[in-house]
Design a protein around this nucleic acid. Structure first.
Ligand code: ZN
Ligand code: ZN
Ligand code: ZN
Ligand code: ZN
Lengths: 141, 141
DNA sequence: CTAATGTCTCTAGCAACTATAGGTTCAAGG
DNA sequence: CCTTGAACCTATAGTTGCTAGAGACATTAG
């Protein structure tokens, strides 16, 4: 049985994060000690590791909630789980695409600046020029 | 002179966003009509376009605040402005690097799944395996 | 003149935590 | 056995960058 601090350390998350996950129902309320402190067993540790890894991969908590409830029904087809993962993959790819456009524009504007005064700064100029860019850059959520 | 709605339309932002920018001091309080409605001139339109473009490039509002106050002093060296832009570029690159690692892992786990039952699902398995990955994937802010 | 928008202020909500305050419990050293 | 300090408890508020709603006033088209 682990205290919340030990569990946090083991899983690589902060203590308040665990309490937060409990509050929103991602982790079940654990046992308590005589003095009302949380005590976690193996199940909780695995569940938290699952959550953490999914978070590391960028899954939103709602998707993780769905994945967890799927993983509680091992006999069903994994199609729904795979669909969640594919959705996450395409979200990641969309973000990469957008960021690469930003990278290109930032590179260009930094590269073109002659590093003189603000009045001649290419960075300030490009930012202020509201018609300069043919590309659409929006909208990173 | 533009009303807030027209300005919003012209700049491609929502009306409450403009009020929000005013509230946090990114846009100065504009003139008001007899009936207390906001009226904006060219200066405000340009400033908002600047903000929007910088936001589109992913600059945080604090950085934009600094860029705006720099752009009000055209005689100074643009070094500070360029440094902000370089910081943003490296933040973007860091995000891209991390996302590409996520992309690779998501691809691998989706590709390896035989699409049977949850019990055999590679997606669920990889997420639950807290020691599977040699790579570090953390921490996208 | 009236009806339909548009605008005003203020408050609350989103994700996913993080930080603080003020109090309780636990483990170890003396 | 007792004290001290760390770790724990709850509850609330703050973070970022907006967005949505309520209820009241202003403007404009027909
Ligand atoms: Zn410059
Ligand atoms: Zn651009
Ligand atoms: Zn599968
Ligand atoms: Zn991994």
């Amino acid at each position: 049985m682990l205290t919340i601090g030990k569990l946090a350390e083991a899983a690589g998350v902060k203590v308040p994060t665990i309490r937060y996950y409990e509050q929103i129902g991602l982790l079940p309320p654990p046992e308590r000690s005589a003095g009302n402190q949380r005590l976690y067993g193996n199940r909780a540790e695995e569940r938290l590791a699952f959550i953490r890894h999914a978070r590391d991969l960028g899954f939103p908590l709602e998707a993780i909630r769905d994945l967890l409830s799927l993983s509680d029904r091992p006999d069903q087809s994994c199609e729904a789980a795979d669909a969640i993962a594919r959705a996450q993959l395409s979200a990641v790819r969309a973000r990469i695409g957008r960021l690469r456009a930003l990278e290109a524009e930032l590179e260009r504007m930094i590269g073109q600046c002659a590093h003189g005064t603000i009045a001649d700064c290419r960075v300030i100029e490009v930012l202020g020029d509201h018609a300069h860019c043919a590309h659409e850059h929006r909208k990173e959520p």
